[in-house]
């Protein structure tokens, strides 16, 4: 452990309001700690005050009201992957959760932490983008709701203010006639950070695309919706030529780079192949 412990203070919040008061004073939240502890161990976590929010019942649980499903920020991957209703109606979330880290991380890591950490390689955001989730943020100033598509601004930058917590995420169940697709390309079968990943939903009628939503992760500063590809495909008949063209247009939507995990070139080519797999699998 490379951090100097006395430089860190951590308290456990007993209620949401207590946690929010501490945030207002400059404390930063810790949920499952699976991102934070990695930084801490490497001596890369900023010293200062922290508040443990893992005990807050206000941020827990998956609830269903009519057509709206709400996932508390503290929902774990294990809860997501085991949830019956999610499995049938939002399978990408479950498929994604299944491939996160390994079981220990799935039991500990949270939805809110994954979103707030704002890594371009985080596995939940692409699914939330194609499901057009709403994200609910809370602070001592109250609650606010924004479209998830507007949440991420840039590399490690988001709509989240320093004194805000992610409260929950909600999803509208309106995609029962759609095909749902998820593909994560990692460096190994478990404990792998994505090199590229894709979430997609598609509704076709007589081989013509009625609606399509596509999102990629790890290929731009944030997870991205592929609006150019979507625009092109909507109303389009799926065939060899249109799929080939879609793969070309994808270059406008994603901008992968070289890093120590992979190369920009690889990410690009494989993203195109994944897109093809998605479109061919259905057509």
């Amino acid at each position: 452990m490379r951090a100097y412990l006395p430089d860190y203070q951590c308290s456990s919040a007993k209620s949401l309001s207590e946690a929010l008061r501490l945030l207002e004073k400059g404390a930063r939240p810790i949920a499952g700690g699976t991102d934070i502890m990695v930084l801490f161990d490497a001596g890369l976590l900023a010293p200062g005050d922290y508040v443990d929010i893992l005990g807050l019942s206000e941020l827990k649980g998956i609830t269903q009201k009519k057509n709206t499903l709400t996932l508390g920020a503290l929902t774990t991957y294990s809860e997501v992957r085991q949830h019956r209703f999610l499995q049938t109606n939002f399978p990408i979330l479950c498929d994604g959760a299944k491939e996160v880290g390994a079981v220990a991380i799935q039991n500990r890591g949270t939805l809110g932490g994954n979103i707030a950490n704002a890594s371009p390689a985080a596995d939940f955001p692409p699914a939330l983008l194609v499901y057009e989730a709403k994200i609910h943020l809370v602070s001592t100033r109250g609650m606010r709701t924004i479209d998830y598509t507007k949440f991420h601004h840039g590399y490690k930058e988001s709509e989240l203010k320093k004194d805000e917590l992610i409260h929950s995420v909600s999803l509208e169940n309106q995609l029962s006639k759609h095909h749902h697709f998820w593909r994560k390309i990692g460096s190994r079968k478990a404990q792998a950070i994505s090199k590229t990943m894709m979430a997609g939903v598609l509704k076709i009628h007589k081989n013509v695309v009625e609606e399509v939503r596509i999102s990629f992760g790890s290929v731009a500063p944030t997870a991205v919706r592929c609006t150019e590809v979507e625009k092109f495909l909507t109303g389009c008949a799926l065939n060899k030529n249109t799929i080939r063209e879609a793969k070309q247009i994808l270059l406008k939507d994603i901008h992968p780079i070289d890093d120590i995990r992979s190369t920009g070139k690889y990410r690009l080519v494989v993203s195109q192949n994944v897109l093809e797999e998605f479109l061919c699998g259905i057509g």
């Binding site: 390994a102 404990q191 950070i193």
Partner: peptide, 16 residues
């Protein structure tokens, strides 16, 4: 060594 961590120096897991 730029990837001196088990998260980015990729050793196979039991699944691999």
């Amino acid at each position: 060594m730029a990837n001196a961590r088990m998260s980015n120096y990729i050793m196979p897991t039991t699944l691999d």
